[in-house]
Design a binder for these strands. Sequence first.
DNA 1: GATGAATGAGTTTTCATTCAT
DNA 2: TATGAATGAAAACTCATTCAT
Lengths: 196, 196, 196, 196
Amino acid sequence: MPDNPSVHGIDDSPRGRLLSAAARLFREKGFDRTTVRDIAAAVGIQSGSIFHHFKTKEDILFAVMEEVIRFNTERLRQAVAGADCPRDQLRNLIRAELTATVGDTREAMTVMVQEWRCLGEDNQRRALALRDVYERLWLDVLDRLHAEGAFRADPFIMRRLLTGMIGWSPNWFSTNRRLSVDDLAEIIVERVVGES
Amino acid sequence: MPDNPSVHGIDDSPRGRLLSAAARLFREKGFDRTTVRDIAAAVGIQSGSIFHHFKTKEDILFAVMEEVIRFNTERLRQAVAGADCPRDQLRNLIRAELTATVGDTREAMTVMVQEWRCLGEDNQRRALALRDVYERLWLDVLDRLHAEGAFRADPFIMRRLLTGMIGWSPNWFSTNRRLSVDDLAEIIVERVVGES
Amino acid sequence: MPDNPSVHGIDDSPRGRLLSAAARLFREKGFDRTTVRDIAAAVGIQSGSIFHHFKTKEDILFAVMEEVIRFNTERLRQAVAGADCPRDQLRNLIRAELTATVGDTREAMTVMVQEWRCLGEDNQRRALALRDVYERLWLDVLDRLHAEGAFRADPFIMRRLLTGMIGWSPNWFSTNRRLSVDDLAEIIVERVVGES
Amino acid sequence: MPDNPSVHGIDDSPRGRLLSAAARLFREKGFDRTTVRDIAAAVGIQSGSIFHHFKTKEDILFAVMEEVIRFNTERLRQAVAGADCPRDQLRNLIRAELTATVGDTREAMTVMVQEWRCLGEDNQRRALALRDVYERLWLDVLDRLHAEGAFRADPFIMRRLLTGMIGWSPNWFSTNRRLSVDDLAEIIVERVVGES
DNA sequence: GATGAATGAGTTTTCATTCAT
DNA sequence: TATGAATGAAAACTCATTCAT
């Protein structure tokens, strides 16, 4: 798994620094309340200069989302590959998405959920295509678990409930409390397959 | 339970129509992308006239949230009162919050979650005080269930997971599909107390 | 001399109360920064009700000025009538205008000077006609003094200088200091006819 | 003495042109009745562009005042330095302030007097500090004259009367009449020290 | 006369975007 | 690539005035 601690596994190029700053600002204040000047100031350039790197403000948002989906899709792949049985794969998937959501790509993940509607139609379509790949990885594992009788509910609905549980976590989970990401992952695993 | 089909149990006064329109627009486009003119147009008045009813645009947002919290707090109260054992109370609570979230107060509930940060500090504090009452009703029931051994996880965390599962539902649940609100509620109940 | 302590010798009718409140507000905040609502609030009615008494906001301003000119023209007449020689008449005139300016009609007098340009052309013409009468009283006395050799400068210019000296006084003169209106009047008299 | 004929000794930079136009408009129509669009139109730019040079409309007003005070404080300094005895210094001061008031900085000087209350508290404080230096120059000369017995009245009050006489002059003095600035200055000098 | 909701033109200010340098 | 002045459309909000009740 990539170990780059930046928001989306992005290098230190001007474009990368721009994306990191944008992700953070978009999460903090929202896309609409973040001005191009804010982003420029955060990386120490003038607002006009931003448009040498991105054609529009929305393009920055799309880039943030694209990077974070690609990065975490790869993370999910490795999560699945890193386990043999579906049950362990599920645990790995939950850990991976939790890590993405409250850990290293927290900013960008939150942005993807919260600022989705700030994308225009075309960009939404493009982003959805990327998310489909991501979701496929989840559904494969859940389907297999369901087939084994690990839970009764519809795998599709189960994935929706997991998305909700994990996606809401940055609103309350804090890394400096007693509860670790793995602890929380275990609790969520139990929501799927039952408390042992 | 109130049977008013409007967004938040609001009457037909100008103020009420304003709030309904605002709730819908805020959900569709977000607070920042909804202009005062949009809201005015939706109820058939001029933009300036809005300011007879609300001092600022943010006040409209706060009013939407306040109404929906008050309305649904009462709904939750009746949900708890309408059952004898904690297990049934939990089912009622989940049904109630689901109904609020994907049913009659869908617009305003979504707004409350998604546009929270558009409230200024003072209004956030005021709204939080109202939400505390609401959350208290949940925790009382979950605490009791936990005490009876219905589940092992921390009730506080369990509530967070429930908030995520239910709060995410408007993003995928559709009333005109096979799955009913009660069906979904049952599935979610099982996430808490286990399948059967 | 009228001893009504109101701003312009105005009775206690709604119209009178409106004019007093307007004069005070116009002086404090200026005509443009005073809203019709401010004036209404100051007399305890609703803003719409004002238009039963005055056709436009500017009409209120004109009425304030008209009242204060008429009232003080009469005051000036009595000042002239109350003395026998031009030198005493001058003293009386200065005392009278000073009293108007820092005393009982202070608000309205200040408004007349400072908000003059807020009158439209027509109202300016009408107000000027009233002021001409007022100024005539001054010039008659100054002409006579000049004819007697009490001072060399052009009486017309002398009146301008007196207008400046007296008109500026509300910016610094305070009734609760040692200097009385009569003291100040004496100092100003000396600017015209010399220090004894 | 600076010989720049602009309103406040301001160069031809965008900012300078903005200040000149603003000073003229503020004098003609008053601060409140002058719109940002008016100012922009007067210098041939768009209203939005103004905010690259000044953060708020009030800041423009403050800048006009600041420039004119600084410019004329220097003018006063040279007026004092340009004479040996207090009596000639007084004449120079009066000429200098008259020139400022009806001559080259006429617009901005009028604005400073008439639009003072349009400044917020902070800006008033800052402007007052600058005016104190200016007034000090006057009081030094008047104190010396008083000490020599040139007049009996309190120097402080004498300055107030001079402020009134000179400050009112733009309302009637016209450069294309027979009376020159020096003529008028002489008449005003006599109000202080008597007609020879 | 009084009310208060509504109007609609107008205000200052913001901000993504452009472009000459 | 970077700058920063300029653009121009749009935003929230104001307010004198109207009018049905």
